[in-house]
Simulated assay, not measured.
Amino acid sequence: MITDWIWGLLGGLMIGAAGAVYLLGNGRIMGASGIIGRIVDAKGSQALEAAAFVAAMIAAPAVIALVWLPGTETHLTSDWLVIAVAGLLVGLGTRIANGCTSGHGVCGMSRLSPRGIVATLVFMASGIATVAIFRHVLEII
């Protein structure tokens, strides 16, 4: 069985390669929140391309999980309210930051974008603080 760190490495390589291919093929940054925004704005062929990208972004890990990792445990909560609130907060954060982890973290940092670097430092620090508070102080997770 492949250890967790190798799965993380392979996933990171796949995301990085996808970002490079997207930039080379479209001349645009592969930021998931911007791509989803193009679906919402429904701008003709851009919306269709964006929808295909999002569908592949959902389908690829699902296929990998079903084919190579059947029965893998996750630690996702079964509380749908927590999942919904977390999703809304992530969406709000991407709107405030003018981008998401793929746009700022993967593509922005690789291009040495000051805005991407600052955004990545802020969302990483926020995530670390949130987990520390919810796990060690509030003992919720």
Results as ranks from 00 to 15, higher is better:
G34L: 04
G34Y: 07
G71L: 04
A47S: 10
T101M: 11
H136L: 15
P70T: 06
G71V: 05
V90D: 02
M1R: 06
L76C: 08
F123A: 04
G31S: 11
T3R: 12
S110F: 11
L81N: 08
A59C: 05
C107Y: 06
F53V: 12
G19K: 04
R115D: 01
V40D: 10
I29N: 01
L66V: 10
G99H: 03
E73L: 13
A62G: 07
L138G: 02
V54E: 06
A129R: 13
L88E: 01
C107L: 09
I133D: 01
G12T: 06
K43I: 13
V63D: 01
V90I: 13
A18S: 07
S102V: 02
S113A: 11
W80Q: 09
T94G: 10
M124E: 04
Q46P: 00
A84L: 15
A52E: 03
T72F: 10
V67M: 14
A86M: 02
G37P: 01
L69G: 02
Q46K: 11
W68M: 11
V131K: 03
P61T: 02
G99P: 05
E139R: 12
R115T: 08
V67L: 14
L89I: 06
S78K: 07
A52L: 13
T74A: 07
M1E: 01
R28K: 15
G12C: 12
T120V: 00
N98E: 09
R38D: 12
G37W: 03
R28W: 02
M109Q: 04
G31Y: 06
M14G: 05
A52Y: 02
L9C: 07
A129Q: 10
R95G: 13
L112K: 09
I36V: 15
R38P: 02
L89Y: 01
P70W: 08
D79Y: 08
A65F: 12
L9S: 06
P114Q: 00
V122D: 00
N26F: 12
M14F: 12
T94C: 09
D79W: 13
G105H: 04
W7Y: 15
T72C: 01
V82P: 02
S45Y: 08
A47C: 09
G31P: 01
I141Y: 09
W80H: 13
I6E: 01
H104S: 09
A132F: 12
G44K: 15
C100R: 01
L48K: 15
L112V: 09
I58Y: 04
I39Q: 07
V63A: 06
P114N: 02
D79T: 11
V82G: 04
G27C: 08
S33K: 07
T74V: 13
T72H: 08
G71H: 04
Y22M: 09
A60Y: 04
A119E: 00
G16T: 05
A119M: 04
R115Y: 06
S45R: 10
T3K: 13
L13D: 03
E49L: 13
G34N: 13
L9N: 00
V82K: 09
L69S: 06
L48C: 09
M57H: 06
T120A: 02
A55P: 05
I128N: 00
A125E: 03
G8F: 11
V137C: 02
F53M: 12
G25Q: 08
F134Y: 08
E49N: 11
V122G: 00
T120L: 00
D41I: 15
S78N: 14
L92K: 05
G71R: 03
V90Q: 07
L112Y: 09
A50E: 10
G25E: 02
E49C: 06
A84C: 14
